[in-house]
Design a protein around this nucleic acid. Structure first.
Lengths: 245, 245
DNA sequence: CGTAGTGTTGAGATCGATCAAGCGCTGTGG
DNA sequence: CCACAGCGCTTGATCGATCTCAACACTACG
């Protein structure tokens, strides 16, 4: 999470080496900057689809509500993520974006993508790959929601979070900062805050995790990987078919 | 589902008008053809990622199993769909592909995408949009799985199916052919075959649907749309930002 | 005519939800 | 410095939607 270079470039060049020109193209996406307080709603579902955002620092999440108030959080956003990408295909945004803590976002217009598609086949391939990889990640989450118990879902979430954070923080070990409340975790995993509490306590008693303030240490990562049949979708992508410059 | 022209071209030109050259590019994807019997596994999760497939006719689905046998169907494929697209980003496929009935598929190599990305910005934008739209669809399904009751999930599935089929069959009204078994529907919705049976019976008693053989008529579509807060993601896409030829 | 697959039905079990209370922070205002 | 409100987390009692298990009916098919 260096403050000097772009998180987006860091994240993307994990997968392919980018030309100067392509780095410059990405850098223009992060020219503008806006900060938001914790718990702020940046845009709401149904709004006209104007900008995308690159996360500079802080966590946020996207969610949808059912008419009666049931809430589903569909994506947790970290530094380097592009927010709002799926909605590019549609005229209106489908989710509401809410910050978890103080956050800095870089808005850029949808039309910037047009330029990338016309001028850089390699970046186009990379963006397409990211979109497709995110589909695989959603499918993994779907599997967890459809077929896993509460403890398995929590384990899956923790493994997914730590895998994502390791891409941009290679120094990370087994401890993550978890700024979300248990109600938010419940809305992400399709459970209730009460049951999240009970599940965390159970997992701590069983020696899977250790909690301290809002830091969480994963004690038995291998056991949790086995429990959830977890696959890291972030470390590797197949870039062999990409067009060359 | 015309047998003369390509389902893929039909489906894609629903969104933008395609040049001759682009139609030709898509047609080459459907040159080869292979047929499979009902209940056949075309490829398995973990296989090397070689080909994509365009569906010419028949239904199929992609699924993953947990080590203990719990199954999650993650996508139902119809004529005109591209199968295996999300796995393009990875070296190995993440799901197993199984036919529901007798099916005809057109395999084409991943590297064909390379050519499209280099030569047609417009088709690239369209493919990217399809991938992003499919993300939104997965998010909708995730919401259903995380926060909806059995009856709501079944309603959501039926509405989603009929919306998709209407794209390629504009003549469709309120009746669909449902060749999947109740066990498969259960594996798609994260429920059990027993409870699917009970839910269908309940919905029939309540006048939402009518069943006859493997045909299913939707009697109260508006009520079901309201119940599930359903949004059609297939009818419209935002193509205004696309590059011009 | 046996066998396998699919759907239905019923009894009982269970995981997670709901409801309600209490506890420990933290920030705020008197 | 204290009182108090608000929020997040925990705890316990009870409830209920869905699962599990088992039996049975129906169809297709070799």
């Amino acid at each position: 999470m260096s403050s000097t270079s772009s998180c987006l470039v860091t994240k993307l060049s994990h997968y392919v080496s980018l030309s100067q020109a392509d780095c410059a193209r990405l850098a223009t996406l992060e020219k503008a900057e806006r900060t938001f307080d914790a718990g702020h709603e940046v845009y709401q579902g149904g709004d006209e689809n104007k900008d995308l955002y690159v996360v500079k620092h802080g966590w946020a999440f996207s969610y949808t509500d059912l008419p009666d108030g049931r809430r589903q959080i569909v994506k947790i956003h970290h530094p380097g993520d592009i927010i709002g990408f799926p909605d590019v295909a549609l005229k209106h945004v489908t989710t509401t974006l809410r910050t978890v803590e103080d956050v800095c976002l870089c808005p850029f217009p949808k039309s910037s993508l047009d330029e990338i598609l016309r001028e850089s086949p390699k970046l186009s391939a990379l963006l397409l790959s990211i979109a497709l990889r995110d589909q695989v990640v959603l499918i993994d989450l779907l599997r967890a929601m459809g077929r896993m118990s509460a403890q398995e879902r929590v384990s899956y979430m923790l493994l997914d979070l730590i895998s994502r954070l390791r891409i941009t923080n290679p120094g990370m070990t087994d401890t993550i900062r978890l700024p979300m409340t248990q109600s938010q975790i419940a809305d992400y995993l399709g459970l209730t805050n009460v049951y999240i509490s009970k599940t965390f306590i159970r997992m701590e008693e069983d020696g899977y995790i250790h909690r301290d303030q809002n830091r969480l240490q994963i004690l038995r990562e291998d056991a949790m990987i086995e429990l959830t049949d977890f696959h890291d979708r972030y470390a590797d992508m197949d870039t062999s078919w990409f067009p060359h410059d």
